[in-house]
Simulated scan of single mutants.
Amino acid sequence: MTSYREISFNGLWKNNPALVQLLGLCPLLGVSNSTVNALGLALASAVVLVCSNTAVSLVRGVVNTAVRLPAFVMIIAALTTCIELLMQAFTYELYQILGIFIPLITTNCVILGRADGFAAKHDPARAAYDGLMMGLGFGLVLVMIGAIRELLGTGALFANMHLLFGPIAAEWKLTLVQDYKGFLLAILPPGAFIVLGLLIAGKNRIDQIAAERAKAAAPEAPVQSRRVRVTGVIE
């Protein structure tokens, strides 16, 4: 069984679904033009991940192999519908902004991949924890891209957070650059590709530096000389 520490490391860094596995890129790039949009989709995806992993783990022993994937898709679709209805009820304006990307959680490769690749092989506790870590890893990248694009594009952060958290968040907007003229490329689709590429490059560089330091710190294996004794008989 996979340890909880390994599950955490895989979800947040080693096998991050956005930076390493490159899964779920359509919603990742499509709605990450602001922090509130990115955070809303990240929370919705994380909830579906945790609940679907748990449900799949609970039913893995009674689902026939022939209908395994359709059953998993039905579970994910049911949970996505619940999230969609909740967002319509409590965050309707944000739901309208996110649009088709909320129903498309059903076909998100991250969720289906974890259901079939991990939850179907582990107990409910580990499956739920894996969903949480993968959801956090995916959500952190999503929010980082949204924050960077919003900052570069508008010079501010946390605009329109009331769409997700209500009137209490109406004054959360931080204007970091006064009289900012705006950088249109950052909030256009090409900006999402550029920011994601820079994040992937940064992660790869950190992994490379860590590997080089680990190699330099590792003690060299001692070279042991062996003496070979040769005996011969001459007649």
Rank of each mutant, 00 (worst) to 15 (best):
L163V: 10
V63C: 04
N160Q: 14
V177Y: 03
L58M: 10
A221M: 14
A186D: 03
S34G: 15
T65N: 04
S57L: 03
L43G: 11
C51H: 04
G182Q: 00
V143N: 09
F118E: 14
F72T: 14
L39G: 09
A156G: 03
M144H: 01
G135D: 11
V110D: 06
R226N: 13
M144N: 04
A127P: 02
Q96W: 05
A186F: 02
G146Y: 08
V62N: 01
I111P: 06
F90E: 03
F118H: 13
I76E: 07
Y92T: 09
L23G: 06
A221Y: 06
S57D: 02
A159E: 09
I234D: 12
V47E: 01
G197H: 01
I100S: 06
E6G: 13
G232M: 14
N33G: 15
L41K: 12
N16S: 09
L199H: 03
I83L: 06
E93F: 08
R227N: 14
D123I: 05
G40F: 07
A44E: 11
T2P: 15
R126Y: 11
A89H: 05
G137P: 03
N53F: 08
D130A: 11
V31R: 08
M161R: 06
L58W: 00
V20L: 03
L25P: 02
L69M: 09
